[in-house]
């Protein structure tokens, strides 16, 4: 019935576990085999390019609506920022993708077979982060360069890729999105519920910066610059204002959030019942 074939018996002599390659392979199969992965990824990145097109092509008339509206914080004099401004929406979709990859394991119950296959659990946290991170990085690099190219095609005055800081902003957009997606996985591990994790993600990235503006001007900005979106967003600025993080320091703060989130997930999972 389940008697091993000679091939399988030969395989038995090989190392007994899949190791790191197996773990990453398994997480990759899980990620790619869900239609939702591709839908969210494609949706987020197409939206990012199209929004960039919308913002850059209407920039001369003062933004969509003609009254200078548009994405918060967008500098309408800067075509590069406008062309990539769709990242604002894309980050939410990609963060949710990260959340769903983890909470989907809890709602469907597959987390039990996942942890039965990897009882130490922490490799799963890192493996999922690595697989999703790589996937989002590749896809958002494509989208960021596409948004830049589309923006350059429809507007005059787009700085060349060789100009100071431009390549850093384009690549930085992809790095930022990757970090937010991985942060989504950490929130998923910590909260286990899709609604809860998405709410926290939304709060961190969208709500707290707005609430932060209500703080006194004397010290409010000193607090809000530490928020993950504000800090990481520095990498997307051509020139950074005084009193804010430098591009890479800001990104390091965002990466700090991700690392803390993943470490907290590992610690939490070690003792928790599944």
């Amino acid at each position: 019935m389940t008697t091993s074939t000679p091939q399988e018996q030969a395989a038995e002599k090989q190392p007994p576990t899949g190791g790191t390659t197996g773990l990453l392979g398994g997480e990759w199969v899980k990620t790619r085999s869900l239609r939702s992965t591709w839908n969210v990824l494609l949706g987020a990145l197409v939206a990012m390019v199209l929004l960039g097109l919308l913002f850059t092509s209407t920039a001369e008339s003062g933004g969509p609506g003609g009254n200078g509206g548009g994405p918060p914080g967008a500098d309408f004099a800067q075509p590069l920022t406008l062309s990539l401004a769709g990242y604002n929406l894309a980050q939410l979709a990609l963060g949710v993708l990260g959340v769903l990859l983890v909470t989907g394991e809890y709602t469907s119950g597959t987390v039990r077979s996942t942890f039965a296959a990897t009882p130490k659990r922490w490799p799963v946290v890192l493996g999922k982060a690595a697989v999703l991170g790589a996937l989002v990085l590749v896809a958002s690099l494509v989208a960021a360069f596409a948004a830049y190219a589309v923006g350059a095609a429809v507007t005059d005055g787009m700085p060349g890729l060789g100009a100071d800081g431009v390549l850093r902003v384009v690549v930085g957009t992809a790095l930022y999105l990757t970090a937010i997606a991985v942060l989504g996985t950490a929130l998923g591990w910590l909260l286990r519920s899709t609604a809860g994790a998405v709410a926290v993600l939304f709060g961190l990235v969208f709500l707290l910066p707005v609430l932060g503006q209500l703080l006194p001007a004397s010290w409010g900005p000193d607090v809000t610059r530490w928020l993950p979106g504000q800090a990481g967003g520095q990498l997307l600025q051509l020139s950074t204002a005084p009193g804010t993080f430098s591009p890479w320091a800001g990104f390091a703060v965002l990466v700090g959030y991700v690392v803390v989130g993943l470490v907290a997930s590992v610690v939490r999972l070690r003792s928790r019942d599944v």
Partner: peptide, 24 residues
């Protein structure tokens, strides 16, 4: 409790575990 993701095929479900465990 059922431990299957509704969006995944039966084969993909098994392949993911087989890969993780290094099974042929």
């Amino acid at each position: 409790a059922r431990a299957l993701h509704p969006g995944r095929t039966a084969r993909a479900h098994l392949q993911a575990l087989a890969a993780t465990a290094g099974l042929p």
